[in-house]
């Protein structure tokens, strides 16, 4: 009996860390809304993780669920340094931004936006207050 319990615990031990190290969170975005994700008290623990880990976001919009995953290209320690992530979107682009530099994009159909054609540079800068 004890042997079975130990085998069970070992199996749990082997499988739990792979999911525990991934940051999974679900975010529901209404039309015309942006979302901040803020790291909570666990930042110290995050600092201890030196390996790159996958961070998954599930973005729900207009009854559809999109999965966005940061791959090993992004070091989670960057997210810890910035202490929060910012999600922004334009009419066709959803961008998840870590520390202002690293981002991935995904298409979504959302609200009215300023459109600019034929310009050399269009720099759309978020004006954000500090939420630390």
């Amino acid at each position: 009996m004890l042997k079975k319990i130990i085998i069970l615990i070992l199996l749990v031990t082997i499988f739990i860390p792979s999911s525990a190290f991934a940051v999974d969170t679900k975010v529901k975005i209404e039309e015309g809304e942006s979302v901040f994700l803020e790291a909570l008290e666990e930042s110290e623990e995050l600092n201890m993780i030196t390996a790159k880990i996958p961070i998954k976001f599930f973005v729900e919009y207009a009854d559809s669920l999109s999965e966005i995953e940061f791959t090993s290209e992004i070091d989670p320690k960057i997210a810890v340094i910035s202490s929060y992530m910012f999600i922004e979107y334009s009419d066709t682009i959803l961008k998840l931004n870590l520390s202002g530099d690293d981002s991935i994009k995904k298409s979504l159909n959302i609200g009215p936006r300023i459109t600019v054609e034929y310009a050399d540079t269009v720099f759309n800068m978020p004006l954000v207050s500090a939420i630390f």
Binding site: T13, I16, P17, A20, F21, V23, T25, V27, E33, S34, V35, F36, L37, E38, A39, L40, E41, E42, E45, L46, M48, I49, P76, Y84, M85, P126, L127, V128, S129, I131
Partner: peptide
């Protein structure tokens, strides 16, 4: 392994 689980929370929209 459980203690390493990071938690992220939604803190609302960008009402500045």
């Amino acid at each position: 392994s459980l203690s390493f689980t990071p938690v992220f929370a939604q803190t609302g929209s960008t009402s500045l």
